[in-house]
Design a protein around this nucleic acid. Structure first.
Lengths: 208, 208
DNA sequence: CGAATAACATACAGTCTGCATGTATATTGA
DNA sequence: TCAATATACATGCAGACTGTATGTTATTCG
């Protein structure tokens, strides 16, 4: 008969420790900033020592990257849950936009993903993470809209990046207390402005 | 008759020391990142000691803020020099956009102003700096365009912030090696899409 | 059941930041 | 003009943090 706490497989130990480290780091990185959070504090919250941290992660940045990756995935899942492929291209785009703005209201997410992430990991690394998760649905939505002729044909990568940047800034502004309606209205105007035919009447659907 | 090196007024000494500290910090902050640049290195490059730094600036962040402020002003001046008020609203907007993208190619500027700045000082502080310098001309250009009926009437603050965010991301992407033409084309499409009347066909060809 | 290896814990070296204290130079006012 | 005072620095110190090297315990495997 094995004791309850002993006899844990190595893989289980690794997985559990990594998960606890990431969870503790996530909590602290969202409450405070990356720079203000020290590894002693993280390992104390996780119930391990710094030795464990540096055994599982190359350095503090690597742990931060793991947290960012997880959080970006969580945001992407919220978006995909809100914009099923059954919707029309433009409607899916709008639903996804709103879902993104809602998802980014989770405390500390904007700083983690939009401020500390790019500064600590660099824009290139953040682009890679975004392309694996969040931006994918956005880019696919844009491609679909272009194919359905409801959007001008433009360089997809650039369009994705610039719209994503606008969404990011909107999330930051809303968190800072700006009017959600104002930013939402401008975002929609930017998207609708990309229609190949003049926007004309926004309410009655014109492209069909 | 005063000696050459002695007999310097206190105000001159302060001004000179501050300027040297800011210049040395600017050089290092643009070559490396804020986090990778230590105050011992900065004061060594400036030819003073850390005592002088902490006499003139509250902390490392305050020195960084001074560098950011100076650099943001330099960018704004380049833009205003390139987009005189004699131009038509839309043309001034385009000229300013191109000037911004050019100005941001100065080595290290994107990281300083677009990555480290927001992360270290916060988005609110960066917004304040931007509104004092760069964004002012953009917002005024947008207001002028709206007044001349060549742009839909939208919340000005939000529109300014979101377009600025798109410009920022374009500058980052271009520095990372992306196609300037692609990003420029999308930026112009976003701007032109905001026309209240159908795309207006300002030129027989689209934008190029 | 050893031997090798993985998963930690502990200890240490180097560096950094911010402050406190000391000193020289400039300014002020009687 | 000359002390008194304030300003502009320089120096030294305390605390904290990061990364690594080394030691110890728990698995895995032949």
């Amino acid at each position: 008969m094995q004791e309850e706490s002993t006899r844990r497989s190595n893989r289980d130990r690794t997985e559990a420790t990594r998960a606890e480290l990431i969870a503790a780091a996530r909590k602290l990185f969202t409450e405070k900033s990356y720079a203000e959070t020290g590894t002693p504090e993280i390992v104390a919250a996780a119930g391990v020592t710094r030795g464990a941290l540096y055994h599982h992660f190359a350095d503090k940045q690597a742990l931060f990257a793991a947290v960012v990756e997880q959080e970006a995935q969580a945001v992407a899942e919220e978006i995909e849950r809100a914009s099923p492929p059954s919707l029309l291209a433009r409607d899916a785009l709008i639903a996804g936009s709103d879902a993104y703005l809602v998802a980014m209201r989770a405390p500390g997410r904007t700083r983690l993903l939009l401020l500390d992430g790019p500064a600590v990991l660099g824009r290139a690394a953040m682009d890679a993470i975004d392309n694996r998760h969040g931006n994918r649905s956005l880019r696919e939505g844009l491609v679909a809209a272009m194919r359905s002729q409801s959007m001008a044909r433009l360089p997809v990568e650039a369009l994705t990046a610039l719209l994503a940047a606008a969404f990011d800034r909107a999330a930051l502004a809303i968190e800072a207390g700006a009017s959600t309606e104002d930013y939402r209205a401008v975002l929609m105007a930017l998207i609708d402005g990309l229609s190949p035919t003049p926007p004309q009447a926004p309410r009655p659907a014109r492209t069909r």
